[in-house]
Design a protein around this nucleic acid. Structure first.
Length: 1173
RNA sequence: GCCGAGAUGGCGGAAUUGGUAGACGCAUACGACUCAAAAUCGUACGGAGAAAUCCAUGGGAGUUCGAUUCUCCCUCUCGGCACCA
C-alpha cells in the first residue's frame, strides 16, 4: 500500500536510525550494573519463542511498551534491568527438525539471529550482554538443578496413572496443555493413557498460589498489581472449593458376615459399646452374638475360651470383634478351634500382663497364658486383622503397634470417645467393621435429600466390591466403556447421563440412617474430591438429570426463600400464624396447550388452584379434591410434581388469618371436559379462565408463588439449587441452609475440607527437544539423581527425532548416552529418557538475567537481592494459567529452599492486547494478513512504528492493524522536525544547524512556512503548554496509557507550532518527553541543538505546578440540567458573583424568564446550575 | 451454565472525584499554495432542522439540579473455566 507522505520533509529515518543504534551499542549505553547507590528497576518482557516465520508487527507491541518504561525509568536515575532472551525448546523447532532432518540447534540458532535483527531495527534498549537461551547447556544446567531440588524435596514423583496423551505429538501432556479435550498445540483429541511419567506436586502449593493473589501490603493494596482478569483466571484454575467430607457406610446384600462380640475383664453384653454396636450391626442386617462370659470379675482362660467355642457359631462367615481382655480370649479360642473366620477386630486388647499403665497385678494375669501364634492367627483370620488403639492410651498403644506388626494386621490409631473404648457409642469400631465411602460435597445442608450415591467408575472400591455385586457383568462392561471414552466425550455436560447401579450394595445416609442405592457413572470424576458424590436431585441439576433418566426418587429439603405478598394479602405481623402444607395445582386443558387460572374477585390477582393438605392426606388426593371444589373438573390424570417446595407467608383475607404455607406444585391433565359444577360460595370468590403458560406468566404477580410455579413449568426447571430454609431435615428443619453447613457436617461425623481443581503438573515429555530429566534408573538402587557436579546432562545429538510413541523419547536409542554407571553403586544403569516440557525453561528465566554467566550458582544471592522482584512484567494474557502459574510455583519453591528472597516473582503484570490483521482476524500466514515489521520500518521508520503501536488504542486492548492510519504519527514526527527550525537561532550555533540540514534527505531547500502571528509569543505560554504536557505524559506512562501520552504530545506540538519561536531549553524539554517513544528522532534533534551526551541518559523533567495554573477558567451555566451558556472568569471568583454573572447572560435569562428559581448549585471553577419550575 | 472484560461518529479512540460528550489521529469535503499533482497550511466534519432548538455514549428503568461515569434488569461481543459435586 502506498501512503502519501511528505517527500520533501527533512526527516529521513533511514538516515538516522541505524546511525544511532550503532552509536548506542558502541557506547554500551544500555548495559546495566548492580549499583547500590541507585534505585533499581527490573522491567521484563515475556521472551519469545523464535519460530522460522520471524516476528510480525503484533509481536513488538509489548516490547515497545517495556522499552518506553525502561527509558523512562533510566531517565529517572534508576539502574534499569531490561533484558531479552529466547525460549527455544519445544515442539515447533522439533517438528521442523523432523521435517527437514536438521538438528534443531541449527534452526534455533538461525531463528534467534533473525529475531535479534528484527528487534534491533526497532531501537530497543535491551542489555544484550545478558541474553539467555533456554537451549544453552549453561542455562539448562540450572533448569535441571531446580528439578533435582524438587526431586530431593519429594515434589517430583514418578507416577503410572493414566494421563493425557496426544496421539499426534506422541507425548503426555499436562492438564494445562489440554484445551476442551484437545491438544493445545495440534488440536488432536487427547486420550487417557497409563504411562510412566514424572509429575511435579504443584498441588502442594495450591493454597499459597491462591492466597498470595490477594496478599495485601501494609497500605492495603494487593501485593500483586495484576490485571483483575488474570488473577480471576488463576483463581478459577486453582479452583478451590470448601465443603464437607462425609462417610457413607456400605451395606452388602450378599456376603453378610455374622458377628461375635466378645467383652473384656469385668465387662458384659450390657456394658460399654456392646448394646449399641449390636443394634447398629443388626440394623445393617447382620446376625450378632454377644456371649456373656463366665466370671467376668475373675476370668479364667480355659473357662472363657470354652464358653465362646461352645456357645457361639464361629465359621468362615464370622467376624470376631473383641474388646480388651476379650481379645486374648478370642485369639486363644481361634487357636484352639483352628478354623478359618472372616475377620478379627481387636479393640484396645491385652497383650502381656504388663500392658496396662496400672502396675497393680490382677488375678487374670496368672489365670491366662500369654503366648500367641501370630502367624497362625493371621492365617485363620484370612489376613483380615485390625487392631484399634485409643490415642489416649499411650502405654498400651506402643504394645498394640508392636503386636499389629507381628500379626501383619492393620493398626488403627484413633481417639476413642471415652478412654479405652468404654463409651456407650464408639463409632470408630463400627467404621472398622463396615466398609464406607467418603463423599465430598459443598452442600452438606442438603444431606437429608440424598436419594442415591454415585462413585466414579475408576473408584478403587468398585473393583474391591466387584465380587459382591449382583450385576457384575453389566458393571464391568460399563467400566470398560468409560475407559474407552475420550476425555471430551466423558466431560461433555450436555451429553445424556449414563451409569449403572451396583446391585446388592446399599449406602447408609449418616444423617437419617436411610438406605440409598449405589451407582457408578462417568459424570463423577475420579480425581476430583473423593470420587464419590452424594446425589441430591432436588437441589442439584446434574443429579436431577441422572435421577430423571434412571427413575430415581427426588426429595426436597430446601425451601425457596419466602415470598412476601403485598396488597390485600400483606402479612400482619401482630397476628398469629397458621402453618400449613399446601398443594398448588396446575391443570392442563384436555385438548389445547392451555391451563386453568383463577381470578380472585376481591383484588383481581391471578393464581393457580391451591388448598391445604388435611392431616396425613395424600398430596395427589388433596389436589384432586381442591380442583373439584374450585373448578368442578374431575376427570384428570396426575402428570408430575413441579419443582421444589416454596414457602410463602401472607394474610388470607377469606379466612382472616396469617398463614405460612409450604407449597408443593402439581401438574394434572384433564382427560375430558367433565365438570360437576362448583358451589355458589366458590363462584363468588373467583372466576375460571384458560390461559397459555406465557400469558399466565404475564398476568401473575412476580412476587407470588404462582409466578415461580409458572416459570418452572416454562423452563422445565425441576431443581432448586439456591439456599433457603430446610424442611424434612430432622433437627435442622427450619434452619437456614446457608448457615448450618458446618454444623450439619459435624453432626454426621464429617469434616470440613478444601478441594482443588488444580492437578499435579505432568512434567514428562516423550520427545527429543527438551531438557533431559537428570535422573538415572539403577536396578539395585532404584531412581538415583544425577550428582549436581555432573550437570548439565547434555542433550545428545540423534539421527532421528521422530517420537516413538512407546513412552520413551528418541533418546532411548542413543545407547552411548542412555547407558551409564549408577552414581551410587557403580553398576550398569540407564538414564531417564523423558525430557522436560516447554514450560520448564521459562519458569525461572527472569532470575538468570540477574546473573547470566554465573557458573557456580543459579543466581548470586547479592545480585538476586538487588534486582528481585520483577517490577514490571509485560506479555500476553494467554499465559494466565500456564507460564504464570508454573513460574509462581517454581519461584515459591526456590524461596522455600533459599535461592530467592521474595515470595512472588512479578510485582506488576500488564497484558498486551493482540494486534489483529487489517481484516480483523488473527495475524496468520494462513489468512495472508501478516504485516512484517521490517517493511513498516523501511517505509516509515522505527519511531513511526513505535509511536503508532502505542497510539492505536488502549495498550491492553485487542485492535486491528491499519497501515493507512500510520501516516498521522509520521506527520507528528515531521512536525517536531519543523519545530526544530523555530528554536531561537542565537541559542544554537550555525554549525549544528547546518549539520542537521546536511543529514536531511533531498536537496530542496525547505521553504519556511508562513507562521500565523502568535497570540502570545511569551515564554510563559510555552512553559504552560510544556509543563502541562510533562504532567500528563508522566502520569500516562505510569498508568501505561500510552495512547493518551502520544496524543498529549501531539496536542503540545500542535500548540507550539503556532508560536513563532521557542527557546532551546523549551525544545529540549519536549525532546525528553519524546525520547522514550521515538528514541532515534529525539536523539538526532537532541544532538542537533548542541548536546554532546545522549538524551536517553538525561533526566526526566519534573513539572512545575505553578506554571500550569490557569488564571482564567471557563464556567458553564446549566438551566434544569441543560447547558445554556458559558463565560470566562478569574479563577478565584466567589460563588455569589458566579451566580450573579450567570443569571445576567442573555442566553440564560431567556430560560429564566417568567419562571421561579428553585435552587442554584455553584461548583467553584466549574459551573452554575440553575433549577427553575 | 459459571466467572471476567467490554459496547461512544464513517473508522481507531478521548473524557480527573458525576459537571460543555466526541480530545488526538485516520478518512472525507471545501479553500490557500502550484502550470499541475503530491506534500504542506487553513476551514468544516454525530444526526434532524432555515433557525430557535431538539435527539444522540448497545436497549430499558432508577438515583441526581446534572449520568458515557453510580444502581437494577435485558441484549450483544470478546476472553477464561466448564458434569469440579
Amino acid at each position: 500500500m502506498i501512503i502519501p507522505m511528505n517527500k520533501d520533509a527533512k526527516y529521513d529515518p533511514a538516515k538516522i536510525e541505524l546511525k544511532w543504534q550503532k552509536k548506542w551499542t558502541k557506547d554500551k549505553l544500555y548495559q546495566t550494573k548492580e549499583d547500590s547507590k541507585k534505585e533499581k528497576f527490573f522491567v521484563l518482557d515475556m521472551f519469545p519463542y523464535p519460530s522460522g516465520e520471524g516476528l510480525h508487527v503484533g509481536h513488538p507491541k509489548g516490547y515497545i511498551a517495556t522499552d518506553i518504561i525502561s527509558r523512562f525509568q533510566r531517565m529517572h536515575g534508576k539502574s534499569v534491568l531490561h533484558p531479552m532472551g529466547f525460549d527455544a525448546f519445544g515442539l515447533p523447532a522439533e517438528n521442523y527438525a523432523i521435517k527437514t532432518k536438521t538438528n534443531p540447534i541449527d534452526s534455533v540458532t538461525k531463528n534467534v539471529q533473525r529475531y535479534k535483527e528484527q528487534l534491533e531495527i526497532l531501537g530497543f534498549d535491551y542489555d544484550w550482554s545478558r541474553e539467555v537461551n533456554t537451549t544453552d547447556p549453561a542455562y539448562y544446567k540450572w533448569t535441571q538443578w531446580i528439578f533435582l531440588q524438587l526431586y530431593k524435596k519429594g515434589l517430583a514423583y514418578e507416577s503410572f496413572e493414566p494421563i493425557n496423551w496426544c496421539p499426534v505429538d506422541k507425548t503426555g501432556l499436562a492438564n494445562e496443555d489440554v484445551e476442551n479435550g484437545r491438544c493445545e498445540r495440534c488440536g488432536a483429541l487427547v486420550e487417557k493413557k497409563p504411562m510412566r511419567q514424572w509429575v511435579l506436586k504443584i498441588t502442594d502449593y495450591a493454597d499459597r498460589l491462591l492466597a498470595d493473589l490477594d496478599t495485601k501490603k501494609p497500605n492495603g493494596d494487593t501485593f500483586l498489581d495484576w490485571p483483575h482478569s488474570i488473577k480471576e483466571a488463576q483463581r478459577n484454575w486453582i479452583g478451590k472449593s470448601e465443603g464437607a467430607e462425609i462417610e457413607f457406610t456400605l451395606k452388602m446384600a450378599n456376603n453378610k458376615p455374622r458377628f461375635v462380640l466378645i467383652h473384656g475383664y469385668k465387662g458384659s453384653p450390657e456394658q460399654d459399646f456392646f448394646p449399641w454396636l449390636k443394634k447398629e450391626l443388626e440394623k445393617r442386617g447382620h446376625e450378632v452374638q454377644v456371649p456373656a462370659l463366665p466370671n467376668p470379675e475373675n476370668p479364667k482362660e480355659s473357662e472363657q475360651v470354652d464358653y465362646v467355642i461352645n456357645n457361639c457359631t464361629i465359621d468362615e462367615n464370622t467376624v470376631i470383634v473383641a474388646h480388651s481382655l476379650g481379645g486374648v480370649v478370642a485369639q486363644k479360642a481361634l487357636m484352639k478351634l483352628n478354623k478359618q473366620i472372616s475377620g478379627l477386630v481387636l479393640v484396645g486388647t491385652a497383650i502381656t500382663p504388663g500392658f496396662s499403665k496400672e502396675s497393680k497385678s490382677r488375678l487374670f494375669h496368672k489365670n491366662f497364658t500369654w503366648d500367641f501364634d501370630y502367624v497362625r492367627i493371621n492365617k485363620l483370620a484370612q489376613g483380615r486383622v485390625a487392631i484399634l488403639s485409643d490415642t489416649k492410651e499411650i502405654h498400651r498403644g506402643a504394645f498394640l503397634k508392636d503386636m499389629a506388626g507381628k500379626l501383619s494386621g492393620a493398626f488403627i490409631e484413633t481417639p476413642a470417645v471415652k478412654e479405652h473404648f468404654t463409651a456407650s457409642e464408639e463409632p470408630a469400631i463400627l467404621k472398622c467393621v463396615t466398609p464406607t465411602v467418603s463423599v465430598f460435597t459443598t452442600r452438606p445442608d442438603t444431606i437429608f435429600g440424598v436419594t442415591y450415591i454415585v462413585l466414579a467408575p475408576e473408584h478403587p472400591w468398585v473393583s474391591e466390591l466387584l465380587s459382591q455385586i449382583e450385576n457384575k457383568a453389566e458393571v464391568e462392561a460399563y467400566i470398560a466403556q468409560a475407559k474407552l471414552a475420550t476425555e471430551i466425550e466423558r466431560t461433555d455436560a450436555k451429553k445424556e447421563k449414563t451409569g449403572v447401579e451396583l446391585k446388592g450394595i446399599r449406602a447408609i445416609n449418616p444423617a437419617n440412617s436411610e438406605e440409598v442405592p449405589v451407582w457408578i457413572a462417568d459424570y463423577v470424576l475420579a480425581d476430583y474430591g473423593t470420587g464419590v458424590v452424594m446425589a441430591v436431585p432436588a437441589h442439584d441439576e446434574r443429579d436431577f438429570a441422572f435421577a430423571k433418566k434412571f427413575g430415581l426418587p427426588t426429595k426436597h429439603v430446601v425451601m425457596e426463600p419466602i415470598t412476601v405478598m403485598s396488597g390485600i394479602t400483606t402479612f400482619r405481623p401482630d397476628e398469629p400464624i397458621v402453618y400449613r402444607n399446601v398443594i398448588r395445582a396446575v391443570v392442563k386443558h384436555w385438548s389445547e396447550d392451555k391451563y386453568l387460572v383463577l381470578t380472585w374477585k376481591d383484588d383481581g390477582r391471578k393464581s393457580f388452584i391451591s388448598g391445604g393438605i388435611e392431616g396425613d392426606e395424600d398430596t395427589i388426593v388433596a389436589a384432586k379434591r381442591e380442583i373439584e371444589e374450585e373448578t368442578g373438573y374431575t376427570d384428570l390424570d396426575f402428570i408430575s410434581y413441579i419443582g421444589g417446595k416454596v414457602r410463602a407467608r401472607f394474610y388470607a383475607p377469606i379466612k382472616n388469618q396469617n398463614r405460612e404455607d409450604l407449597q408443593q406444585g402439581i401438574l394434572f391433565q384433564l382427560k375430558s371436559n367433565k365438570n360437576v359444577g362448583i358451589s355458589e360460595a366458590e363462584q363468588k370468590i373467583h372466576a375460571i379462565e384458560w390461559m397459555s403458560l406465557e400469558d399466565a406468566r404475564k398476568v401473575m404477580d412476580p412476587t407470588l408463588v404462582d409466578f415461580i410455579t409458572v416459570n418452572r413449568l416454562i423452563a422445565n426447571n425441576q431443581t432448586y439449587t439456591g439456599e433457603g430454609v430446610l424442611c424434612d431435615s430432622g433437627s435442622f428443619t427450619g434452619k437456614d441452609s446457608g448457615l448450618i453447613k458446618k454444623d450439619i457436617t459435624l453432626s454426621v461425623g464429617g469434616q470440613w475440607v478444601s478441594k482443588y481443581k488444580l492437578r499435579d503438573w505432568v512434567f514428562s515429555r516423550q520427545r527429543y527437544w527438551g531438557e533431559p530429566i537428570p535422573l538415572i534408573h539403577c536396578k539395585k538402587c532404584g531412581v538415583v539423581p544425577v550428582p549436581e557436579k555432573d550437570l548439565p546432562v547434555k542433550l545428545p545429538k540423534v539421527k532421528s527425532y521422530e517420537p516413538t510413541g512407546t513412552g520413551e523419547s528418541p533418546l532411548a536409542d542413543i545407547h552411548k548416552w542412555v547407558n551409564v554407571k549408577c552414581p551410587k553403586c557403580k553398576s550398569p544403569a540407564k538414564r531417564e529418557t523423558n525430557t522436560m516440557p516447554q514450560w520448564a525453561g521459562s519458569s525461572w528465566y527472569y532470575l538468570r538475567y540477574m546473573d547470566p554467566k554465573n557458573k557456580n550458582a543459579l543466581v548470586d544471592p547479592k545480585k538476586e537481592k538487588y534486582w528481585a522482584p520483577v517490577d514490571m512484567y509485560v506479555g500476553g494474557a494467554e499465559h494466565a494459567t500456564r507460564h504464570l502459574i508454573y513460574a509462581r510455583f517454581w519461584h515459591k519453591f526456590l524461596y522455600d529452599i533459599g535461592t530467592v528472597s521474595t515470595t512472588e516473582p512479578f510485582i506488576k503484570l500488564q497484558h498486551v492486547g493482540l494486534i489483529m490483521g487489517e481484516d480483523g482476524r488473527k495475524m496468520s500466514k494462513r489468512f495472508g494478513n501478516v504485516v512484517n515489521p521490517d517493511d513498516i520500518v523501511k517505509a516509515y521508520g522505527a519511531d513511526t512504528m513505535r509511536l503508532y503501536e502505542m497510539f492505536m488504542g488502549p495498550f491492553d486492548q485487542q485492535i486491528a492493524w491499519s497501515t493507512s492510519s500510520m501516516v498521522g504519527v509520521r506527520r507528528f514526527i515531521e512536525k517536531v522536525w519543523r519545530l526544530r527550525e523555530t528554536v531561537s537561532k542565537k541559542e544554537v550555533s550555525q554549525d549544528t544547524l547546518s549539520e542537521l540540514a546536511s543529514s536531511a534527505a533531498g536537496s530542496q531547500s525547505p521553504a519556511l512556512l508562513p507562521k500565523r502571528p502568535s497570540n502570545s509569543s511569551s515564554s510563559e505560554t510555552v512553559n504552560r503548554i510544556l509543563h502541562k504536557t510533562i504532567k500528563k505524559v508522566t502520569a500516562d506512562i505510569n498508568t501505561m496509557s500510552f495512547n493518551t501520552a502520544v496524543s498529549t504530545l501531539m496536542i503540545a506540538v500542535n500548540e507550539l507550532e503556532k508560536i513563532e519561536s521557542i527557546t532551546r531549553d523549551q525544545f529540549e524539554l519536549l525532546l525528553k518527553l519524546l525520547a522514550p517513544f521515538a528514541p532515534h528522532a529525539a536523539e538526532e534533534l537532541w544532538y542537533s541543538v548542541g548536546n554532546k551526551t545522549s538524551v536517553h541518559i538525561s533526566s526526566w523533567p519534573v513539572h512545575d505546578e505553578s506554571l500550569i495554573v490557569e488564571t482564567e477558567v471557563n464556567i458553564i451555566v446549566q438551566v434544569n440540567g441543560k447547558v445554556r451558556a458559558s463565560f470566562k472568569v478569574e479563577v478565584n471568583t466567589n460563588d455569589s458573583e458566579l451566580e450573579a454573572r450567570a443569571k445576567d447572560i442573555p442566553e440564560v435569562k431567556k430560560w429564566l424568564d417568567g419562571r421561579l428559581v428553585k435552587k442554584v448549585i455553584v461548583v467553584k471553577g466549574k459551573l452554575v446550575s440553575i433549577v427553575v419550575v
